[in-house]
Simulated scan of single mutants.
Amino acid sequence: MPAAAWWGHGGGVNLLIVDDSERFVRSARRLLEREGAVVATAATGAEALAVAGALPVDVSLVDVQLGAENGASVADALAAARLGGRILLISTRGADDLADLLAGSAAVGFVPKSDLSVAAIEAALRV
């Protein structure tokens, strides 16, 4: 679905952050909620599937490295289950370092954690 078809509906986009760093999740949630997003969180792939199955999710932000789990595999599982909306991978690493992983994943794009914002998410979905 094109970003313009959902962006800003009902007062904000419904995001799911899948990341095992509590510190990052707290900071990202505060930032994105201040920008008008509605944010749910999960720390594992299993939690992500459960949350995305229970709540409306427009975009999932999945960390590339989830402890012992591979974020691309979690993205693939969400996509296979038709959950989580459009999926973006996030990481502290740059897109160039992750090009092969991104190309082989169900994720539609990438946002560096250092650049995370509603505008960056929207821009990544337009590419």
Rank of each mutant, 00 (worst) to 15 (best):
A42N: 04
V127D: 04
R34T: 09
V18H: 05
V51F: 10
I17Y: 13
G10C: 07
L98P: 00
A95W: 00
L49I: 14
R126H: 07
D63C: 04
A68H: 15
G36A: 06
R26F: 14
G45N: 15
V57A: 06
V39F: 06
G45F: 15
W6I: 14
D96I: 00
V118R: 13
A80E: 11
V74T: 09
A28G: 09
A37R: 12
T92E: 09
L78H: 03
V59D: 03
P56T: 11
A28Q: 10
L55W: 05
I87G: 07
T41R: 05
A124M: 03
E122L: 10
A106Q: 02
D97E: 11
E33S: 07
S114T: 13
A75G: 04
V64Y: 01
R86F: 03
A77E: 11
G45S: 15
G10A: 15
A120P: 11
D58P: 06
V118S: 10
H9V: 13
G10W: 10
R29S: 10
A68T: 15
V64S: 02
I121A: 05
V38F: 06
G11R: 09
P56Q: 01
L32C: 14
N70I: 02
A119P: 06
E69C: 14
V127R: 08
A54P: 03
G109R: 08
G45R: 14
G36E: 07
A3T: 11
L101F: 00
V62Q: 00
G84T: 14
P2G: 01
G53C: 12
S117K: 13
E35M: 07
L78N: 08
Q65E: 10
L83N: 11
G45E: 14
H9E: 14
A54S: 08
D97S: 06
A72P: 06
L66Y: 03
R93M: 03
H9K: 12
T41K: 01
E47H: 11
E22A: 15
G94K: 05
V127I: 09
S114K: 12
G45D: 13
M1A: 08
V13W: 02
Q65F: 12
G104H: 09
A95H: 01
D20S: 15
L101I: 02
S73F: 02
P112R: 06
V108R: 10
A72I: 09
I17W: 08
G104I: 05
A120C: 07
H9Y: 11
N14R: 12
